[in-house]
Amino acid sequence: MLTSIRGLRTALLFAGIVPLAAPAFANTANEKTETERNDGFVAMGAGNLEVVPGLSASAPTAEGSAGHMADESGLEFSANVALVSEYRFRGVDLSGGEIAIQGGFDVAHDSGFYVGTWASSLDEQTVGYGSTELDLYGGWGGAIAEGVSADIGLIGYLYPDAGPGDFDYVEVYGSLTGELGPASVTGGIAYAPDQDSLGGSDNLYLYTDVAVGIPDTPVTLNGHLGYTDGFLTFTTDSEALDWSIGADFVTGPVTFSLAYVGVEGDALIDPGGTFTDDAVVASVSASF
């Protein structure tokens, strides 16, 4: 069993198995459907399956919160909690195939600016980042034209009880969403510049999400496709596609989700598919 993703890479390099130009590995983070944190899908990320705010699954963003409380200052406060069958970030399993508990809190101003935090339990034995992921983010989201909205911001992925070494990293993100009737299409980007925790390299993530609400029902069908180029992959060429297809059923503040999730991985980097095997992910979440 792997004890550390970065430790695995170090061992392979010393063994001469992987060329020095090879990528490092699993990312850490939210289908947070990116704005993907819960990649997209709540079951998959910090809020969604890619879990980046705009990111995953993706990520929790101000506009992604269904429930909220507003005060006279123009501020809105919202919270979310989720139970997922496993935590998938950009297709990668970060909970060892086990159930994960997730939740967050957001504060948004009616100007469109927001800040928030989101956390998930991790499988510390396989992932090697400790038992908890804590995301801190802030940005701006709102309409820029009729039927078109934008979201831009900065997110930090923190691992407060990780062992010795550099694990925390920062990403900037942005997305555009267009709506037509019951359908919406989102295209987004997330970029992590050179950081010690990324092996002194960077990471680029591009994704698109499609959601179609079935008229006169509480059901929405979802599709996600993402592309990673950089450190956060399990492939020898540092490039990987991830994908998911699923459905959400909403009743009041509660959402039930089911999705089939996959990501590219090479046997040399992830023997046995510990992090990259396809999986069916189920979740139940609530926003307040």
Rank of each mutant, 00 (worst) to 15 (best):
V250M: 12
D194K: 10
D151L: 12
G142S: 11
D161Q: 01
G97M: 13
V284H: 06
G40W: 07
G139R: 02
G40P: 13
P23R: 07
V115Y: 01
G112V: 03
P19A: 02
W140F: 09
Y260R: 13
I17E: 10
V107K: 06
S111G: 06
A259E: 06
S287W: 02
L204N: 04
L258P: 01
S120P: 04
G40C: 04
A192G: 08
D194R: 11
V92Y: 03
I17V: 07
V170R: 03
H109Y: 03
Y207Q: 07
A43I: 12
G188M: 00
R88H: 12
A59N: 07
V210S: 10
G47R: 10
A150C: 01
N203A: 13
V52D: 05
D277V: 02
F89S: 08
P193N: 04
V52T: 07
A247K: 10
N203E: 10
V84E: 14
G174R: 01
A62H: 09
T3C: 06
D93F: 03
G181M: 09
L180Q: 05
P253M: 13
A24Q: 12
G16N: 01
A108P: 02
G64R: 15
L180E: 09
L12R: 09
L154D: 03
H68E: 11
E76K: 14
L20Y: 01
S287I: 01
K32W: 09
T217H: 06
A119R: 00
V127F: 06
N80W: 12
D209C: 01
D110Q: 14
T186Y: 00
E34N: 08
V212K: 02
F89P: 11
Y169I: 11
L94S: 13
T132F: 15
A190D: 10
T233P: 03
N30M: 15
D106Y: 14
G139S: 09
T276H: 01
G45C: 07
A279C: 14
A43N: 06
N222F: 10
E63Q: 15
A190R: 10
N80G: 08
G246Y: 03
A211S: 07
A267R: 03
N203G: 02
V254C: 05
L49D: 11
N27S: 05
A66P: 15
S175M: 01
E264F: 14
T117G: 04
D277N: 05
T217D: 04
F41G: 09
D151E: 07
G74W: 03
T251G: 13
E72D: 11
Y191L: 15
T208A: 13
Y207I: 00
D135Q: 14
G40N: 04
S197A: 10
G213Y: 11
F25A: 08
V263K: 15
L221R: 12
T251K: 07
F275P: 09
A162D: 09
N222Y: 15
G116W: 06
V81I: 15
A66L: 09
H68Q: 11
G246H: 12
D209P: 00
D266G: 00
A259M: 12
A162W: 02
I144W: 02
G156R: 15
S111H: 05
D270Q: 13
V84C: 04
G265Y: 06
V284R: 11
D71T: 11
G174D: 08
A70T: 13
S56H: 11
L225P: 04
D161R: 05
S65W: 12
S65N: 08
